[in-house]
């Protein structure tokens, strides 16, 4: 049996966790899920569609919002009781964090961002990302129970219609005040307005070639296409755009239907964050820029003249 940590944000299911469920089902038909917090009870039955027969929900008075150390403690306690062959999660910031806590508590190894997993008796073999996916590592994990996360956008969630809903089993984790001390106290900013970069279907992204004053047309195009604006590390380091918009190894990794890279040369640190886009259009004055070998389509030209023309043409096409 494989136990998968399925994340949620105040009762909204994390779609990335469904990729970890797909990876688990590829290894073992017996997949169970663990979710944390009473808010998860309502969404757990839906996991039946993703191959989960039983969903364990950790319920505790102190678990009112995301609490990583407590979640890791709860997952480790459940794993100790159920003895799965592996505990998996999505390689998202939260998935990696909760499994790192669980593995640290159990003093077991943890392999983050795996692209393949082969379980063995006491020794498992994994392939995992280094350098945010620019380099692969083949590794052996020496542990009776494997703790690992799955690299994002490598395994596709595949729902099976007509499956029975997952059965819910509540459990009461044994948590200390220290475990619960690290938890979300409040939320600021954003909140309802705008599209999140990680989940946007269209990302209109600008680099050095756009210039500090050149992001207006990018914002207009993003709005017309129902997407959001991203940028390269150079742009945030220069203070032209907020860090929350940075795409890349140290920023946000995106996998939109369409990624438009404007005035971005294609440094490896940037490519690591956008190479999973379904379609990429590069707009660059340099036809030999590195980004061109990753793009599906290219426009050769300066963002300052090309972007206003594209905005106008898209506006006209929308009527």
């Amino acid at each position: 049996m494989i136990l998968v940590y399925v994340d949620h944000d105040r009762g909204v299911l994390d779609e990335l966790s469904l990729q970890a469920l797909a990876a688990a089902r590829g290894i073992d038909a017996d997949v169970q899920a663990v979710l944390i917090g009473v808010d998860a009870v309502a969404l757990a039955p839906r996991l039946g569609e993703f191959g989960v027969a039983t969903a364990h929900v950790g319920v505790h008075d102190g678990l009112t919002d995301y609490a990583p150390m407590a979640a890791g403690r709860a997952v480790s306690q459940l794993a100790e009781r159920l003895q799965p062959t592996a505990v998996l999660a999505a390689g998202s910031p939260r998935g990696n964090e909760v499994l790192a806590h669980a593995a640290a508590i159990m003093d077991e190894p943890f392999a983050a961002d795996c692209t393949s997993i082969t379980l063995g008796d006491g020794v498992s073999e994994v392939t995992r990302y280094r350098w945010a996916g620019n380099v692969f590592e083949e590794a052996r994990v020496h542990a009776p129970m494997l703790y690992a996360t799955t690299a994002l956008h490598v395994f596709a969630a595949d729902p099976q219609s007509g499956s029975a809903p997952a059965a819910i089993v509540e459990f009461a984790p044994d948590l200390t005040p220290a475990d619960l001390a690290v938890r979300v106290l409040e939320r600021t900013g954003g909140g309802g307005g705008g599209v999140s970069l990680a989940e946007a279907k269209v990302v209109v992204s600008g680099g050095r070639g756009v210039g500090e004053a050149g992001f207006g047309p990018l914002e207009e195009l993003a709005e017309l296409l129902g997407g959001t604006v991203g940028c390269s590390r150079v742009v945030t380091s220069a203070g032209w755009r907020p860090h929350a918009e940075q795409v890349g190894q140290t920023g946000t990794k995106v996998a939109p239907d369409l990624y438009i890279a404007i005035g971005i040369s294609g440094a490896t640190q940037h490519i690591a964050g956008c190479k999973n886009a379904k379609t990429m259009i590069a707009i660059n004055s340099d036809p030999d820029a590195t980004i061109m070998s990753f793009a599906d389509y290219a426009v050769i030209g300066d963002a300052a003249t090309v972007m206003p023309a594209i905005v106008e043409a898209v506006r006209a096409a929308k009527g």
């Binding site: 259009i281 070998s293 389509y297 290219a298 426009v299 050769i300 090309v306």
Partner: peptide
């Protein structure tokens, strides 16, 4: 090793982008 399909040069490429 992919090569991008070039849609055009400068603002004239806008209709192909659409």
């Amino acid at each position: 090793t992919g090569t991008a399909t070039v849609l055009g040069t400068g603002p004239e490429a806008a209709p192909r982008v659409v």
